[in-house]
């Protein structure tokens, strides 16, 4: 269970989060929507404990992540997976080594078991055959998929996806969402997914949280989001009733 309680965060004079609270039940997957620069990545980094809030706290299964240090923090993070917006692959390692790295460093699995698991995960994200490539030799979409494999390979209990599909081509976008969905159903992680993938992402999440000016503007069940009558959400969805500035073809 993830409880984000009234967090505030400023960078210099810029206030990014102001009193944001979200609570996510164990095993459910929540989509966080909002325009670019609304603080979605900053929010995820707070949940992971990479950024410290000016005020407020984040509880993961009741533990305040910003109050933990050293071994206890590490063991909480062992149960967590994070897909960075930019992938954050280790660029001195091949794709295989990247995905194998958390297993090699944090588990006592044998070499063959690690190999099996890595290859299986890479196959699931559609990267079979690219094991020996370095991140700089991959396209943006392949980097995202490799990063996804690395995040999922340890069967995390808490998963955060920062724009898993942005910059991918349509077929792969759907495949990525399907992958998130199947692994969510199989492992039952509690998750947050930051995405602009509307409407297809709505099918795999339980709730939608819409951010505006650093706090939660609205929270709806996923099926109700598209039919929302709120003017701000309508504008976000591009269904503004005002004059059409760029008519769609």
């Amino acid at each position: 269970m993830i409880e984000i309680i009234d967090i505030h965060k400023s960078f210099g004079r810029q206030k990014v989060l102001s009193g944001l609270s979200i609570s996510i039940d164990k095993g459910s997957l929540v989509a966080v929507l909002g325009s670019s620069g609304s603080g979605k990545s900053v929010l995820l980094k707070h949940v992971a404990g990479l950024l410290r809030p000016d005020r407020g706290k984040v509880l993961l299964d009741g533990q305040d992540i910003h109050g933990l240090r050293g071994k206890t923090l590490a063991s909480l993070r062992d149960r967590m997976g994070f897909l960075f917006q930019g992938g954050a692959l280790f660029d001195s390692m091949t794709v295989f080594e990247n995905v194998a790295f958390p297993l090699k460093e944090k588990t006592k699995l044998y070499r063959e078991e690690i190999r099996d698991r890595v290859l299986k995960t890479l196959e699931a994200v559609g990267l079979s055959g690219s094991e020996d490539k370095y991140p700089s030799q991959l396209s943006g979409g392949m980097i995202k998929r490799a990063a996804m494999a690395r995040a999922l390979v340890r069967d995390p209990e808490i998963m955060m996806f920062d724009e898993p599909t942005t910059g991918l081509d349509p077929a792969i976008r759907l495949a990525m969402l399907r992958l998130i969905d199947t692994s969510h159903k199989r492992f039952g992680f509690t998750g947050i997914i930051v995405t602009h993938e509307i409407p297809s992402a709505l099918a795999i999440v339980d709730h939608v949280v819409f951010l505006k000016s650093g706090s939660v503007y609205a929270r709806t069940a996923s099926r109700d989001f598209l039919s929302s009558s709120d003017p701000v959400i309508k504008e976000f969805l591009g269904r503004d009733e005002g004059p059409e500035i760029c008519p769609q073809k």
């Binding site: 980094k45 990479l50 590490a74 993070r77 062992d78 960075f84 954050a88 692959l89 790295f101 944090k106």
Partner: peptide, 9 residues
Amino acid sequence: QIDALELMG
């Protein structure tokens, strides 16, 4: 990448 390292515990 440093954040990713820390996030692996």
